[in-house]
Design a protein around this nucleic acid. Sequence first.
DNA 1: GTAGGGTTAG
Length: 553
Amino acid sequence: MLRKHQILSLASSSNPQRNLNVNSLKLFGFSPLFSSTSTSTNPSASLDSSLTSELPDIPSWVSKQNTGTQPSGDDDFVIPSLATWIENHPKVRLFPTKKPETPVEKITKILKCPYPSPEIVVQALNASDLSVSDVSVDQLLKRFSNSWISAYGVFIWAKTQSGYTHTPELYNFMVDVLGKAKMFDLLLDLIEEMKQLKGYINLDTIFKVMRRLANARRFSEAIEVFRRIEELGVEKDVMALNGLLDALVKGDGVEHACEAFVELKECIPLNSSTFNILVHGFCKARRLSDARKILNEMNEQGFQPCTVSFTCFIEAYCREKDFRNVDAILDEMKEKGCRPNAVTYTIIMHARGKAGEIGKALEVYEMMKKDSCLPDSSFYGSLIFILSKAGRLKDADEIFEDMVKQGVKPNALTYNTMISSSCGHSLEEKALKLLKRMEEDSCKPDISTYAPLLKMCCRKKRMKVLNFLLSHMLNNDVSIDHTTYTLLVRGLCNSGKLEQACAFFEEMVLKGMIPKGSICTMLVEKLEKEDMIEAKQKVQELVPNVKEPKITV
DNA sequence: GTAGGGTTAG
């Protein structure tokens, strides 16, 4: 824990120059690993020649002829010590090896070219000599969780092999993949299949279906699933009801949550979470007087509004930067003997930091300690975030090191925050060291770990590092989602890497993702500008309804 | 699966 005088010095520091110096890297203990002890004479050259590419192939319809004017990339420059790490990385196979491919690798290769339907995927897999007993279906589904055609193909292929049965958990995972892809007809067929299997549908299944429906704004269908929950063999209790309300609220349908609540409150015994979910929903929708009404109803039904209830109001006022009312709620809590907890303090500190009031934010940290409320890893994550945002990277680094000393283990969020901040300041080597450290710390990277790294690679035109990251992702079974494809297409477009942008664009469309209009327009405009007419037409064919770029005089 | 997550363009 930082001592008081250290905190005060943090609070008074406003010089961005103290952010980072070379020595600060020693804090991380990385120096030996990253000192240039490469045995290779020219790391960046060997890196270049031996990289097995995870970048999508440039489609034939992207004409190279007119790309001569694009700015040349920074590809030739790779930090030598970084290249060494990439080369020696245990998990990422960058060199064509003599070792035979594992079955999972073989399947991944087969699935690399996008298929039009799961049935064709099944055919392709049947044509191979692979058996389900050689692979982890779980790993494959995770790896292809954003390519529903591939995932469902693997699922069906595995299921039809003798001596193998999917576990209920795997069925649930498949339900979630189909839900994420908004393939609700297929999802309902799968539910029907699970119903026949007896005992396969559980509350987890129901939660996933309701959440995915609500996220797709299909609120009435989510409610209908709940109404029929008993037909599916799941108890219609308060846990299930809270799951429904929570799904509706998270899908921005508090109105529907309220209607469902009115319909169901007489037949199911409620608990205080039921009310808190609605309070949260109304606070999120900035309908504070409705949230107050729920609080009153909560009281009438014999439930005390608690820390969670008040924290929802605090969050709402924080969003408006209305700190006067935040303090008023804190007073109200004190009056009612309701103590703020780490979540409450995190929200306030985060909002103060985001509002540029870093001093006030650090006062919240002090207040919290005075109240003997222990910070958790999310709290530290927020503290690191606001310090980084204020340009105080050195302080953020200190907190990152300090939390470990306090016995709070950094989690994926903490690492993601540190990585994102490093990327935001274009500190490539630091960001990659953090990824490495994350791995050593057995902290699993997720899609938000990679997103800022990929974005930075696009911005700095680091195609080799981009390629490295894509294979790193694959090896960690992290699947590229819609947001990340968008980021890649936009980033590459902005860097004049139109061929690669087109490659990712094609890949996302072939995976069944529908690119946003703005991204299509952007790509079409850039292609037009570069006179890449064939590519422009192809992009327009891939996604109909792309508007012609406006002609600017 | 009751509250804390940082995205986007201009």
